[in-house]
Amino acid sequence: MEKENKHHIAEELKALGSSLDPPGNDQGFRVPEAYFDQLHGSIQDRIKEKGQRQFAGFTVPGAQRLVPLMATFLLALIVGISLLWIRDDGLNGQLALEPDREALDYYAMEMDQLLLYDLVLDSDITAEDILFGLDDGLGELSLYDDELMEELFEQSRYFGIDSQYLLSSLD
């Protein structure tokens, strides 16, 4: 570091009408004895200490910013997987239904207005016919007949079909 000529600084002060002494006065500041003989040692110790702390914590530059990002990513991943699982396992957006109930829900969901008319409003078919039609390939579905009927009523209400009319059609 090349210093400015003291004379220039003194001249500058004089030109500004200052009564300050020329530079060089330590202004009364002191340091503990042999402080500067030990300072570089303290600095080396601090560097080692920091290095060990970083190694112990496996920190890398920018790691502090990475942690919340990673946490957000993991959270988003978990939520995403959960949503996919819900979609696959409970087609009505419900969680973990028992397998047969899932099948019923599937049929209830798939039952559009035309199917309902076909199944219910045709006076020639009976409830057994409907159940038989829905039962196709579902094995133990008969255990849930009541639930299926409830589903049919619900669907009919949804499509504005009077439940009495539905029952009379089924008889």
Binding site: M1, K3, E4, L13, P23
Partner: peptide, 11 residues
Amino acid sequence: LRYHDEMKYED
């Protein structure tokens, strides 16, 4: 910097 460290303005 100027008075005590006697530094040039450029630095």
